[in-house]
């Protein structure tokens, strides 16, 4: 299954934009599995360095994770102040504390303009961005979180253990042989 739509400038991209490997995660900030995947992805980013760019798209399952969507909007709100990934990291490191006051506390820790951040938690444009990420996930065949896409194709192997890293190494080797 392919990623729909492909990665664009609307996405948050971490790492070398020209990297041979494009790793997209559809995730939910309140999902414990995504919490477990967070250090794995971080490690992969360290291992692959300039050979990998990482994109995170929101896939909040709001009915079972009532704070997931507001946490996703909070990362977008931090993004407006240039600190998307910093907030992304803080939230995954503090996954059990995602209520409004906690989000405000994280904004303070990142020295964001907290008044603007608080207003942006209700910014319709940001809410729409999160919802359109979700819809793109549905259309791309995301059926659980986290779901990964590698160079536009859904990754169906295991993400815990060495499989994901091994798969990425193979993809990298392929890209260098072309």
């Amino acid at each position: 299954m392919t990623l729909k739509p492909p990665v664009s400038t609307l996405d948050h991209c971490f790492g070398n934009p020209e990297a041979a490997i494009e790793l997209v995660e559809y995730g939910d900030f309140q999902c414990p599995y995504c919490g477990r995947a967070f250090p794995i992805v971080k490690r992969i980013q360290e291992i692959f360095g300039n050979d990998l760019k990482f994109i995170f798209r929101n896939f909040p399952l709001s009915k079972i994770h009532p704070e997931a969507k507001s946490a996703a909007v909070a990362t977008e709100a931090a993004g407006l102040q240039g600190q998307y990934w910093e907030m992304h990291h803080l939230i995954f490191e503090n996954q059990r504390r995602l209520f409004k006051n906690a989000l405000m506390e994280y904004a303070g820790r990142l020295n964001l303009h907290t008044g603007q951040f608080e207003a942006d938690l209700h910014n319709p444009g940001l809410i729409e961005k999160v919802e359109s990420d979700f819809e793109s996930g549905l259309r791309s065949g995301v059926n659980a979180t986290p779901t990964f896409f590698i160079n536009g194709e859904k990754y169906t192997g295991a993400w815990e253990g060495p499989d994901l890293e091994n798969f990425l190494q193979q993809e990298l080797a392929k890209s260098k042989n072309i």
Binding site: M1, L138, R139, S140, G141, V142, N143, A144
Partner: peptide, 9 residues
């Protein structure tokens, strides 16, 4: 296998 929603949509 969870069939997802893409086929339905």
């Amino acid at each position: 296998v969870n069939p997802g929603v893409d086929g339905i949509l």
